[in-house]
Design a protein around this nucleic acid. Structure first.
Lengths: 235, 235
DNA sequence: TCCATTTTTTAGTCTTGTCTAAATATATTT
DNA sequence: AAATATATTTAGACAAGACTAAAAAATGGA
């Protein structure tokens, strides 16, 4: 119906193709899963991530492969091509910029932004993305501490460790969350844990890895499930 | 895939159903065409507006009718139901709010906003719309001078006439455009015609309705095609 | 190596929204 | 009122993206 801006990133030559909403979501999911599945994302893993059936995944992978967005050999799992990676990063860039917008300008809490950003990330307009970025002051991190790729797709992999890896008496600054589910974020809010705050490990229990932390003159006991989802920059 | 907020406006009881992108576009088109087709929008008119075929329109009308969004009898054209009208107005509200955002905050010119707003108008989030409205200061008009419905769907029908209806020596303030195509808006920019400016009809040619107008100490000859697409508030 | 289990793919179906071609209603002209 | 023209609807097909059920490939244990 609408044609919109049809271009495509391909090697050095810039051209954007237009991808469907579903294609973009698959690319994004593969991008995220590639961290855990270095030598090919499995069909089942992707089905799990996309909340769909393995057979549907196989269908889509074939389409993406046709378009050279992924490298795929039957039964071998799937990897993003350069073009696929670029497209995924572009979607992630938009997602995170919109999250910043929602939190900084529209009074959203960090646990409310995900759903809406999932929709906004598919809006196609280079100018929109560029101007939004400028409007927000070229932010480097989204509200959950994840890096925002620049217009070239470059982003710094943050230098951070999980709180669960800290030893007794070590300190650091809370810089991100691994799990950004509403439930986890609301737990953090309730317990006054926020990005930017300084943490100190006061005690650590060998048995279950639970720890007593200090944050803003406050002491708090947290389980491993919490500490293994908080990113820390050691000081 | 995503469920999102499923509610629906229905009479006094508020409930939002979720409509597809295509359904929303049809509802919007019917809403706009109802001005010219008071006793039912014809299939062909709708096909023209939607840039599609009459047979596709018939199919969609049936679906909308199933959902009680339109009143439809075969061969009789189509009218929005109360629910359909509410849904259309909600989409139009979002479209116009986003246009304001793009122009006021993101440096878009008024001739660049349409395509992007066509995408943004389909984002589903009551909170987003409400907060955007607040962020923009509850604007009453979009960049083309059209009224923005409030959260209840109410909007003031602007009290305005077409410039072509003014007689010799009458004056007014330019308050909107009827045609908001890129081409027309660029013509206006080029000739320094903008909303808010005062116009005076200096001469009017009976033969072809062309007129000489004065605007900001500037005289300009315009054809009827121009004057019949500019809204004026008489002073 | 062979069998059992798990993973992945294939085959066939469904829904949404579109299309073309053909059929039927309505409108217009004479 | 009949004939013609125009508008609208039906019928049948297709593509994207999902599903179920069944087949085929890969994996892991004995």
């Amino acid at each position: 119906m609408d044609l919109l801006n049809k271009k495509c990133i391909f090697g050095a030559i810039k051209m954007y193709f237009m991808f469907s909403l579903s294609e973009e979501n698959y690319l994004k999911a593969i991008f995220h899963l590639q961290n855990s599945y270095k030598n090919g994302v499995s069909t089942n893993a992707l089905a799990e991530e996309m909340q769909t059936k393995a057979s549907s995944v196989t269908d889509m992978i074939k389409r993406l492969s046709e378009k050279s967005l992924v490298n795929y050999k039957k039964y071998q799992g799937v990897k993003l091509s350069e073009a696929g990676r670029a497209a995924a990063i572009e979607v992630i860039r938009k997602h995170r910029l919109w999250e910043v917008f929602l939190v900084e300008k529209l009074n959203f809490n960090w646990d409310e932004v995900h759903e809406v950003a999932e929709q906004l990330e598919h809006i196609k307009s280079e100018k929109l993305t560029a101007e939004l970025d400028r409007f927000l002051g070229f932010p480097q991190r989204d509200p959950h501490g994840d890096p925002i790729p620049d217009s070239e797709g470059n982003f710094s992999v943050p230098n951070r460790v999980l709180l669960s890896e800290l030893k007794m008496d070590e300190t650091g600054i809370c810089v991100g969350v691994k799990d950004s589910s509403t439930e986890f974020l609301q737990y953090l809010d309730k317990n006054n844990i926020s990005l930017g705050a300084t943490v100190k490990v006061k005690q650590k229990e060998d048995f279950d890895q639970s720890m007593l932390i200090e944050m803003n003159d406050n002491e708090l006991m947290i389980s491993n499930q919490i500490s293994a989802n908080l990113y820390i920059k050691t000081t």
